[in-house]
Design a protein around this nucleic acid. Structure first.
Length: 554
RNA sequence: GCGCCCGUAGUGCAGUGGAUAGCACGUCAGCCUCCGAAGCUGAAGAUCGCUGGUUCGAUUCCAGCCGGGCGUACCA
């Protein structure tokens, strides 16, 4: 249409040139600036050697002349504004079908085909099974889970995975810790080293292992004993992690064992393959992977001079295995303290023949735990931490998840325990959930009064009655939901959905305070009920992406 | 030193290559005989860290600098 106008204007001699630079058509930031707007006049100012406002004026005149058929039911008004924007205003009737769409598509409204079924794996949490999950893991869990949900809604085929570090030194240390506590329980005086896990849960596990495996332990020497303790403890802790995540609403499609990479020989194979390609060399008795060739600062050790493999070795094998499983794209969610690891893994991914674009790392900045504004020191080793379970038990799953997703993971997050524990209206989750509960209340009342047969229906009625400013604002917001889902999926930023929900909730609350839904004018009332039901569904769909429930009442 | 992230209102954070920089909390003033006041309306509050550059136009992109966080192992 704009192009048409340019041609017409040129032919009529209003513009000196018919060349068309790159321009954009977008939704303006503020109300009163139309539904679509283009910066065409501004970007072509140089080319046309004319003032943007003058170009815009010529274009609008041409459009009114040549495309008058477009004006009418859909297009209401075209105007020139600001430094030369051309704003297009749609008529209310153009928006009404959106309400029907929401009611019809229900839980799938907002879904997108953007991902074209691409296989994506999101790996997150992946905490070592050496202690319970703490608050920091909670943020990673909330982010990973939400990213998975959003990608899936945006048309990707998503698998969520947890990588279990069930081999290596930490597990041995865990075994030793339990073993030593066991010795202490039996009255032996043993030194409990600093680098062992200090938490009370180690004692609990020691008691359990004694109760269930005491007989085997009695016959075991120290090495066997530690092995038994390690396996028992890891299993026990992992079960706890699973259950904590379950309470947090996070479910994984797959739990992948690091040990299995060793058992199947994949780690060894990966190293051999790299050796053959001359990507691994020996120095000082250790094996080094040439990560520097792939942009890392320096080469990294995969096998130490004592013959033991590093974590990096199994990570190479692990990522290779992921792509071999058929994933087009792999996303790892890590804590910010692991950022130095990105280049390394990226190098491994590229070295096995994949493209760097197929690998993404979401770096979640650290959670700063506070209590009444004062920092809480946390260390797994010292056994002093606030667990994810503590948080969920005290503030609830919904509030915790919403809090974690309320801001970009690019920023550090202050999580104040006392504040989070407060069930006050400070918590934004109530603001959004309240909309859902409020609308449920309205629909129930409408049903009681016989206005509607059921509180859920698929077709709106008398939608043409929705002409109030607040109503159109709501409809336009609803219409933009899918765009937000796509934006969120593209940027891998779940807080986009959070911000959207807050905006939608705010618009609804304002509407509610200005207009009654259940009124004497029955057609208008039915139209408003349709709108309100649509809002309810969008709120529910959005909350679902974040893993937050949409309560019928609160 | 090097690398990553952040610097926007009193506080915590959104946002954008363009037209009036938003939200929440906090402060002040209002709104329930009326579908849920966990809500709404209004007011006050910001030289978008600093300096350059690219651009018709920069808070947004780039470079440098200054602050803050994190990392920088043959640890995991």
């Amino acid at each position: 249409m704009v192009l048409d106008a340019v041609r017409t204007a040129f032919e009529k001699g209003l513009l000196p040139s018919n060349q068309v630079p790159e321009f954009e058509v977008e939704t303006p930031k503020y109300e009163g600036q139309g539904d679509f707007s283009t910066n065409f006049a501004m970007v072509s100012a140089k080319l046309q050697k004319m003032a943007p406002a003058k170009i815009a004026k010529s274009l609008v005149e041409s459009m009114s002349d040549s495309t008058h058929t477009h004006l009418g039911p859909v297009l209401e008004k075209i105007e020139v504004a600001g430094p030369g924007f051309i704003n297009f205003f749609l008529s209310p009737g153009a928006w009404h079908p959106v309400v029907d769409q929401v009611l019809n598509q229900d839980a799938s409204f907002g879904a997108s085909a953007m991902g074209r079924g691409q296989l994506v794996q999101v790996e997150f949490v992946s905490a070592n099974p050496t202690g319970p999950l703490h608050v920091g893991h909670g943020r990673g869990a909330a982010v990973g889970d939400a990213v998975g949900n959003i990608l899936s809604f945006a048309g990707f085929d998503v698998q969520k995975e947890y990588y279990i570090n069930d081999s290596g030194r930490q597990i041995r240390t865990l075994g030793t810790s339990v073993w030593l506590r066991l010795q202490q329980m039996q009255g032996k005086t043993v030194d409990f080293p600093q680098d062992c896990y200090q938490g009370d849960y180690i004692r609990d596990i020691a008691q359990e292992v004694f109760a269930t495996r005491g007989k085997d332990l009695a016959d075991a020497d120290e090495k066997q004993g530690i092995e038994i303790c390690a396996r028992f403890a890891a299993g026990k802790i992992l079960a706890g992690i699973r259950s904590d995540l379950d309470d947090f609403g996070v479910r994984f499609d797959n739990w992948f064992s690091e040990q299995s990479l060793y058992d199947s020989g994949r780690v060894q194979t990966a190293i051999e393959n790299f050796k053959e390609k001359d990507l691994i060399y020996e120095k000082d008795g250790a094996l080094w992977f040439r990560t520097e060739k792939f942009g890392d600062e320096k080469d990294r050790v995969v096998v130490r001079n004592n013959g033991l493999t590093t974590y990096f070795a199994s990570d190479i094998a692990y990522h290779d295995e992921k792509y071999e499983r058929g994933f087009d794209r792999v996303i790892d969610v890590w804590g910010a303290d692991h950022h130095g690891y990105i280049k390394r893994i990226d190098a491994a991914v590229v070295a096995t023949g994949r493209k760097s674009e197929q690998f993404d790392v979401i770096l979640v900045q650290l959670v700063n735990l506070l209590r009444d504004g004062n920092p809480v020191q946390m260390s797994t080793r010292a056994g002093e931490f606030v667990t994810l379970k503590d948080i969920v038990d005290e503030v609830g799953k919904d509030a915790a998840r919403f809090m974690f997703l309320s801001r970009s993971y690019d920023s550090g997050l202050d999580f104040d325990l006392e504040l989070a524990k407060k069930k006050s209206s400070d918590n934004p989750v109530y603001y959004v959930q309240y909309v859902h509960a409020r609308i449920t209340g309205i629909l129930n009342k409408a049903k009681d009064e016989g206005l509607i047969d059921q509180t859920d229906f698929k077709t709106g009625s008398h939608l043409e009655k929705l002409v109030a400013e607040e109503e159109l604002k709501l409809i336009k917001l609803i219409a933009g939901f899918r765009e937000q889902v796509e934006k969120s999926a593209e940027t891998l930023h779940p807080h986009v959905i959070f911000t959207y929900l807050m905006t939608l909730a705010s618009a609804f609350h304002a509407y509610y305070n200005h207009h009654k839904v259940i009124i004497a004018d029955k057609p208008l009332s039915l139209a408003r009920l349709s709108l309100v039901l649509a809002v309810k569904k969008v709120i529910r769909n959005g909350l679902a992406l974040l893993g937050v429930s949409a309560p019928e009442r609160m």
